[in-house]
Computed example of a mutant assay.
Amino acid sequence: MDTIAVDWCYKSQVSCDCNCKGPDEWKDIAPACSGQSQSPINIVTQKVNKNNLNPFKFHGYQHTFYSIITNNGHTVKVNLSGDAIIEGGGLKDKYKAVEIHFHWGKNGGPGSEHTIDGEQYPMEMHIVHIKETYSSVEDAIKDQTGVAVLGFLYQESDNANKKYESIINALPQISLPERTKSKFKGNKTTIESVSLEMLLPPQDLLKHYFRYSGSLTTPDCAESVIWTVFESTIPLSQQQVTDFGAFIPQLSAFSALRFENGTAMTDTFRPVQPRNGREVTYSGSNTASVSTVLVVGTLIVTFLTL
């Protein structure tokens, strides 16, 4: 979701021999990065507001697609056609999916952008959507509600997630150590027989999510994003056999990628930003016709055991 061509970087890249600007200095190249509604944030579950947000409707998420997966110098990105649409989920408009990208730590360590009750997960996926009426993210960010991003957190699993094989197997092809540094950025290959539905938790678990208004998490940090962070996590293992016969841990495989200067692509996340009084809503409300006491008691038990 790079919207400006500047020399910004993550904290893991900042060093005495690197002239790029890390997250603390993003405001110097994009003033919006110092705004009052920045992302990501730490979600404090005891302070969220319960709300009767409807479940999402996912159109076209089940369709398999053929696409380009790219190491763009900051992350792994998959461009989408816009054929997949979301509606509902408290959104007033329909939004089309235009991009997937990931944020991760180092060798399966903490690396998500959003945190929940201070816990940072190994990785986070963002599915970027824009209103149907717009043709690009650049156009959509001019609208305060022009972008809707679905955020999914990952956790380590004992078993390989076979639905991610196409993506994991593509990673060695988009950042091989022996290639010259000038070829790291924009290094790309194809993936196929993948659907958005394959990459997500089961449909019945997508009813539980957090919602707030925020920004892009990279410069220019435009505050034009309706954020949805799902509560259910996605498992990835520390064991995976690639098409090349090599054993690559699924989470750690992302750390084998390289930044443009050839250093390991690790800790590709922006630190959490101040909430500044913004409301964070949880979709777990229930308005069934029973006593208020029963509703509140049920919600508390359900929420704490999820």
Rank of each mutant, 00 (worst) to 15 (best):
M123Q: 04
F254E: 01
E197Q: 09
P40S: 06
A148W: 02
F102R: 04
T263V: 06
A222S: 15
G284M: 03
V301Y: 14
F244C: 11
D139E: 15
S34D: 15
T75L: 03
A160N: 09
E279S: 12
K57E: 11
G284L: 01
C221G: 14
Y95D: 01
Q173A: 15
S213E: 13
K142M: 11
F210H: 03
T217K: 06
G82R: 00
L257T: 04
S182R: 02
K94V: 05
S252A: 08
I141G: 02
Y282R: 02
K94T: 14
F56H: 01
V293W: 13
T287P: 07
E119F: 11
K163Q: 11
T228N: 11
S215M: 07
Y121K: 05
E279Q: 12
N54T: 14
E279R: 10
K21W: 12
F58L: 07
N52A: 08
V98N: 05
W26D: 02
L150F: 08
G118N: 09
F230N: 04
P122T: 00
L306E: 13
T45N: 04
V293P: 05
C9Q: 01
V295E: 13
L199H: 09
P40R: 03
Y209F: 10
H103V: 08
E156S: 09
F244S: 14
A170L: 08
N19Q: 11
T133A: 10
V225G: 00
S252Q: 00
W26G: 07
Q239K: 12
N261E: 12
F303D: 07
P122H: 03
F254D: 01
L299R: 13
V295P: 06
A5M: 13
A32K: 12
N159R: 14
Q46V: 12
T64D: 13
V225E: 08
G262H: 02
T298A: 11
V229Y: 01
N71P: 04
T218H: 05
E156M: 10
V6H: 09
P23M: 00
T45A: 04
A253W: 04
F152I: 00
E165H: 15
K162P: 01
E119L: 10
A5Y: 08
L171M: 06
S34L: 07
L150A: 07
V6D: 14
P31L: 02
P172Q: 00
Q36Y: 09
I86K: 01
P235Y: 06
Q273H: 02
P271L: 03
F303V: 05
P249K: 03
A32P: 05
K106P: 06
